[in-house]
């Protein structure tokens, strides 16, 4: 068989197109055009392929156009949770968002996630987010001597908290939460997801310590079921449902 080459798109080649990225930037030291700490939009035009993700586009900008652009990323495959950002006004992982799914005819808006202090460009200070997570004590708590072998549980017991084990701590949910934006004390959806993972684990014995922490003024009762978190989660975790299960456990006293 002989391959017939197409004049415009040779076999195997992915069509390419031009996209504009409009990126929200901030340099704490200032640039020649912008004062220190000033936030501004900057546009970049790049050539992209249909298989490219927003992360690839950001790489092109950083590697070929402007090396000062700052953003976090590590795995580039939706595992590490470093690159959550606000893309076209929705929180997503840059490495899991294809450019062609975003209507590349229009400029693509890229901003840092909201509600956390911006350090530079798309990098935010995640400390308040991690502080909430630490507060719910995200580690196995048990009484008595450790068993000789692993702690067993049935598939049904495991199923109970399966969904919340998938969290990669990207902060897409917490920084999409309107209560977190305004009030600044709320634990945020992620901390509740993290607590849910242990509260409903049959091997853990610290449930009531965690539930008591979430019963706090800044805990689950601040949630107004806006569902922004469930929509934002790149892992498809049913965050609002997990929060409701925690509320139910507190209301009924049963786990």
């Amino acid at each position: 068989m002989t391959a017939t080459a197409d004049a415009t798109t040779p076999a195997g080649e992915v069509p390419s197109f031009e996209v504009t990225l409009r990126i929200r930037r901030m340099n704490p030291e200032g640039t020649s055009d912008h004062a220190a700490g000033e936030e501004y939009w900057e546009e970049f035009k790049i050539q992209a392929h249909a298989t490219d993700r927003v992360l690839d586009a950001l790489h092109k900008v950083k590697w070929d156009l402007d090396g000062s652009l700052a953003f976090r990323r590590s795995c580039a495959h939706g595992v590490c949770g470093s690159d959550a950002m606000r893309i076209n006004a929705r929180n997503r992982l840059a490495c899991k968002t294809l450019l062609k799914d975003l209507n590349p005819a229009k400029p693509i808006l890229i901003e840092p996630i909201k509600g956390l202090p911006v350090e530079k460009d798309l990098i935010v200070d995640m400390e308040p987010f991690f502080a909430s997570y630490r507060e719910i004590m995200p580690f196995l708590m048990t009484d008595g001597p450790a068993p000789e072998r692993e702690r067993l549980q049935t598939p049904a017991e495991r199923e109970r908290f399966e969904d919340t084990t998938k969290c990669i701590m990207c902060a897409a949910c917490t920084s999409a939460c309107p209560v977190f934006w305004t009030d600044g004390q709320f634990f945020g959806p992620q901390a509740i997801v993290g607590a849910h993972r242990f509260i409903f684990d049959s091997r853990d014995e610290g449930q009531w310590d965690r539930l008591e922490i979430l019963n706090d003024k800044a805990g689950v009762w601040k949630c107004r079921t806006a569902f922004n978190c469930t929509e934002a989660c790149p892992r498809g975790i049913e965050v609002t449902k997990a929060i409701s299960e925690v509320k139910k456990a507190l209301n009924t006293g049963e786990i």
Partner: peptide, 13 residues
């Protein structure tokens, strides 16, 4: 761990 200012324990519930 950092303590948040917890007041009346059951009030919010």
């Amino acid at each position: 761990r950092i303590r948040s200012g917890r007041t009346r324990r059951k009030a919010e519930r």
